[in-house]
Design a protein around this nucleic acid. Sequence first.
DNA 1: TTGTAGGCGTTATCAC
DNA 2: GTGATAACGCCTACAA
Lengths: 343, 343
Amino acid sequence: MQRKKLPTIKEIAKRLKVSTSTVSRALHNHPSIGYITTLRVHKVAEELGYEPNQTAISFKQRKTYSIGVLLPNLSEAFFSAAISGIENFAGTKNYNVLLGQSLDDPEREKRILETMKTHRVDGMIVSITKNTDNYDHFDLLRKYRIPIVFFDRIPLQEDINYVACNLESGLLQAVNLLIKQGHKKIGLINGPEQLIASNQRQEIYLKGLSENGIKIDEKLIVSSTLSKESNQQATSKLLSLKERPTAIITFNDYVALDAIAVAKELGLAINKDISFVSFANLPIWEYMDNRPLASIEQFPYKQGEKATEILFSCIDANDVDTEQEETKKPQQIILDSELVTHK
Amino acid sequence: MQRKKLPTIKEIAKRLKVSTSTVSRALHNHPSIGYITTLRVHKVAEELGYEPNQTAISFKQRKTYSIGVLLPNLSEAFFSAAISGIENFAGTKNYNVLLGQSLDDPEREKRILETMKTHRVDGMIVSITKNTDNYDHFDLLRKYRIPIVFFDRIPLQEDINYVACNLESGLLQAVNLLIKQGHKKIGLINGPEQLIASNQRQEIYLKGLSENGIKIDEKLIVSSTLSKESNQQATSKLLSLKERPTAIITFNDYVALDAIAVAKELGLAINKDISFVSFANLPIWEYMDNRPLASIEQFPYKQGEKATEILFSCIDANDVDTEQEETKKPQQIILDSELVTHK
DNA sequence: TTGTAGGCGTTATCAC
DNA sequence: GTGATAACGCCTACAA
């Protein structure tokens, strides 16, 4: 039932006929231990191939040196870039990353959160499901003083830590660019309405048009559930309007891919008869001929790093004031998005 | 220094004026405990919001219920698909996934392996760096009876567990297809020579040509370090031959992307003047105009699942025969690759 | 059916 | 400088 026993400080102590406390202190180079003893301890530890048992330490210190990361989907380039940033930053602090993907299923999200809690992660980084509408399970973690940093997909709550991207900077730039290029009818293929991200996009889109004195045409705004079929449908709807748009802003790159395909199917020349702008910026665009005019870059890697940084600051804060109820203000970082034009 | 105390079985025991062992057993629905007691224990546990402390359990049982996954790079679609499969399978067994990426740096790989060992993962799934030439750190883990399953990128060793893809099936199909379409000069842009995967590709390529009675032209085989520049260089080299190939097989999709770009730059029409076949099959190909004729699909998600399955079987075996030295034969699974033509 | 006691590996608090 | 001891939360033989 149990795996082979590894060398412990007890073993070292026995060999050297000293106490385990001495060994423990020596291994940590505690100043109270004599130089020679320290040396001998290290030597024997080396010989035995001793390694501290992290599970014992975690148990005793009530600290696991691991953080949980819960994402909707790892196969999306955006999230895999983010976790790459998270893993990298965590590594520099000698933290481990426990991974979970919700696959956009709230039940799964809840379950994973449970196991993360059971495993006593020191903190969590979460990007919520597009269907998450109940945040009790997150509040529960906070009750246990497990800090959470949300990123990109953020719950509709105050008092939470998060890292997100300010869509406004990039999207306004995009709208301005399109208008400068002479586009008057600019469509928007948005995501599901319950997503906060969708509302934001729409508001900024409207703002951008207004600022440029363009009249709003409700019919130019459609939404998609983000499935391939829905993306195609939404695009068709836009492109079959009498007043067909000459430019379309899409919720993200995957929508753009489908939309571009539909446009091509209809015989439209991309970036000529119709232009696209999308969010996210897949690394692959540069290889494609029929790509968006520009992408609104959201820096997932950087968002991941930043989220991890915030998380560590929360963890450290937790470690310091043992008892004090959390008076600390939530940390909310908003990175600026940036319009990147594709050559 | 320490985080807030969570309810323990002691608390429950105190409240009910029973012993902790009773509580422990009741919580596990041990048959020896009376029905009423069991009920009462569960009730109080619920009230207190009790949750077993996994760190304590891991410590005691010498089992962490987590597996480590060490990959070269999460940003590559192939690996993120694989980990998606791993995470999914592990979840069904209530296991956690500890993630690390080596970024193709052997030092980093070693370091991550260390922390995984320190954290006492129950097993590991590893895809090695393209520069890994020393396997001591892996052997060390095996000494500690932490099972390892390698996948896709596999060390040159016997006696190891692995999951990989049989390139032969797909690659021979590819060669046959190309030849049937009339191609006589088929180039190969291979990866670095130290990669076992490169040797395999070359051998099968040669075999495929021989079987079809095509004379081997050494100049049609070039290799790349897999950097963008190197990919481009390798392609240029092939395309500037007097006897220019009419088809090129590339080490993977990323090489194909660069190669296709170079070919286009030279004014060649893709799939007309020159055709490509590549390994891996990015999900994005279907959206691209200038895509390979076909891809040799390697099923990363399935490989991930399979690797996890094998790993669990090793872990279970470990759990059973407490002492017995491992007489078990290594498990080596080879999935068949498959040629997928792109419409 | 329930309780007692010991131990998992480490660290921290005392003493000496 | 070093050692003895308790404690972290849980489990499990062994007793009762």
